[in-house]
Amino acid sequence: MLKTSLLHPDILRVLARAGHHSKVLIADGNYPASTKRGPNAELVCLNLAPGVVNVAQVLRALLSAVPVDHINTMGIPPDDPYAQQGEPPVWAEYRAVMAAAGVKLKLEPVLKWDFYQHVESPDHVLTIQTADQALWANVLLTLGCRTD
């Protein structure tokens, strides 16, 4: 029996093969997951119905299972109309998930077009497509090293 809260067999299989610096994208429901991914990335679709499953739920499960060096969100370009509204509310939820998991990293935005380049790298091993309806809800994890 597993001790982690992550139970999905395909996600666990990919994570078990991933190494330091591997990238895992937790994509919101608007992300073009079939076209914006790395050449080595697998796609797991968890988008059951609008809002089910969401990015925060997947983030919580992943943080219970793997060490993480960086957590990036898709940053909003200054010319986007949403940029004038401030930080997306969902980012505060991610910080709460990180704190509850004992993760002492900063949530770091990477501008949209640079974010796509990070995802399209050979280090990208997994996209988990959610049905999250929040805007700017994508999260890119860079896996760390196990030290225990």
Score class of each variant (00 low, 15 high):
G75A: 11
A83W: 06
A99Y: 02
R95Q: 10
A101L: 04
L107F: 03
V97P: 10
V66L: 12
P78F: 12
K106I: 01
V103Y: 01
H70P: 00
V66F: 05
Q84G: 04
P77A: 09
M98F: 09
E87L: 12
K104Y: 00
Y94N: 07
R95A: 04
P67L: 06
D80M: 00
D80T: 02
P88R: 06
P77C: 12
I71N: 01
V97W: 03
L63T: 05
G86F: 11
D69V: 04
R60N: 11
A99M: 07
A65F: 02
V68E: 04
G86K: 09
P77Q: 08
A65P: 04
T73F: 02
Y94R: 07
Q85F: 13
V66Q: 12
G86L: 09
Y94H: 06
I71Q: 01
G75I: 05
P78G: 03
G75P: 07
P88T: 08
W91S: 06
P81E: 12
G75D: 07
H70K: 15
D79W: 13
M74S: 01
P77D: 09
L105M: 04
V68S: 08
V97C: 08
L105R: 08
G86Q: 10
A96K: 15
S64W: 04
S64H: 09
P89E: 12
L107Y: 04
R60G: 03
D80G: 01
P78A: 13
D80L: 01
E93S: 13
Y82P: 00
A92E: 15
P77L: 11
A92F: 09
A96H: 12
D69E: 15
A96Q: 14
P88G: 07
K104W: 00
V97I: 15
V90A: 09
E87G: 02
Q84L: 11
